[in-house]
Design a protein around this nucleic acid. Structure first.
Lengths: 268, 268
DNA sequence: CAGTGGTCTAGACCACTGG
DNA sequence: CAGTGGTCTAGACCACTGC
């Protein structure tokens, strides 16, 4: 009975046809465990918006029934998604789609901390939109965002202040199509993390990012906006943020004043 | 039968008495799952040197027998240790104690990458020991290393070069007792990652670290050693590295030249 | 081929949440 | 109290490694 069930289950693998098959054109059989396929199916549902950020997804038992696998297999799939912060498990309550509209998750992408005291004592950052305009992507931006040179992009410039001191100046570029309708007013009105706004207004959820950090000298415009002297070095932080499916959705270039703050990183 | 076994197993929890109980003086019952306790016992064995870096540990079945639990419980304990890079699983071969003497693990702690091309094309860094001396810990160093002010510490200064260009200048401080016998000669003779030498010569394995990053201007000594102009900003990287049990074992302050390199960070 | 880790299942029970 | 995720077990079978 056990063996028979196994065969049926293995055969049923075919129905899902490797939704996240990243294999290049090798001739390898590319064996994919069942839980990876379930993970792919859950990922599809997330992308399609079947379950929205902050909402709960069906219980493990329900998903097990839907996909015709055991609870343990669903559990392993969810475990991996939760470890990548795509889902959040809450014992006794259920499993929820992760969202940037939560205090705890703030400092996963903003890694600048005050040298003294904890981030919370400092209070939330004051955000000030300097500019928001539509333009055509140059070669660098197009390459980063995986679009074509000349395609429409939005450019936003803003300043973040902590305890009244301008600390971060950043420019960011967004592909025009998914963010159609984004304006300076819309951004200024919203009081909260920008990535939370992207979720609710545009259905774009950032799930991971890469940062490249350098030390640079400021130009005169940066000095003015950050209210610093010309000999104050800055941290240059270039970020490429991705949504589901490793699709780049934002290029961001930040300049951090680090006389009373530092970029914090855990090496695990 | 199943229920009876369960009771015995739950009772047997008592024997391990929470080896990694980090609870503060709350009166909470502090329930600890079996696999966490097994994890603690494996951790103890690693600390005690029962299994050394690079060596294999007993198979899951053997460990299950030793600790009187099921294979699944041992598996979950090992999974967590492997996810923290304390162990490495190799299908068909066994589970091994992680070590810094492996190429793949190099860039877990050294996150400076060339702007163009991959790190491998650049070849290994040239390491040059500038100084290695014994001195007494000042208040800052003592606090970081969790030792007493005035205790003996070793201070090492070195320069790392990539493709012939001096790129990293770093000072590091080590507690005197665990590193008794470390000399400039010993360091210079060794060709490989410093953390690998610490493992083989002193039995100290670094398992995690925190870094605080700022942009700073160089002083004249730094300019000379790094062969840069006085107006070249540097990345200041302060690292506190820990061995098992969250014991700090190294304080390091690095200065990175970032004109052709950048500090790379993945936000997941 | 035997031995290892990896996957999958089925079922029991525990801990936590909310009505 | 019912429903959820969390733990633990026992056993089967698969995939990989090396002799």
């Amino acid at each position: 009975m056990s063996a028979q069930t196994r065969v049926i289950v293995m055969a049923s693998q075919v129905f899902s046809a490797d939704p996240l098959d990243t294999s290049d054109a090798t001739s390898a059989p590319a064996f994919s465990p069942l839980y990876q396929q379930i993970k792919g199916l859950i990922l599809q549902a997330l992308q399609s918006g079947e379950w929205k950020p902050g909402e709960g997804i069906p219980s493990e038992m329900e998903l097990a029934a839907r996909y015709r696998v055991s609870q343990g297999t669903v559990r392993k799939a969810i475990d991996e998604l939760a470890s990548h912060h795509l889902l959040i498990r809450r014992q006794g309550k259920g499993t929820f789609v992760a969202t940037h509209a939560e205090q705890q998750v703030q400092y996963r992408f903003l890694k600048l901390m005050p040298d003294l005291g904890d981030p919370k004592s400092e209070g939330p950052a004051q955000r000030k939109i300097i500019d928001c305009k539509r333009l055509r992507a140059n070669a660098d931006i197009a390459r980063a965002l995986a679009i074509r040179s000349g395609d429409a992009v939005l450019q936003v410039r803003r300043v973040l202040s902590f305890a009244g001191s301008p600390t971060i100046l950043e420019d960011l570029w967004l592909p025009g199509t998914p963010f159609k309708g984004l304006t300076a007013e819309r951004l200024s009105e919203y009081d909260g993390p920008m990535y939370a706004l992207f979720e609710t207004e545009f259905g774009v959820r950032m799930v991971k990012a890469e940062e490249k950090i350098k030390a640079v000298m400021p130009d005169s415009a940066q000095c003015k906006l950050l209210e610093i002297k010309a000999n104050t070095p800055l941290l240059s932080v270039e970020r490429l943020a991705y949504t589901y499916n490793d699709t780049p959705m934002e290029l961001r270039r930040g300049f951090y004043v680090t006389d009373t703050h530092h970029y914090h990183n855990d090496l695990n």
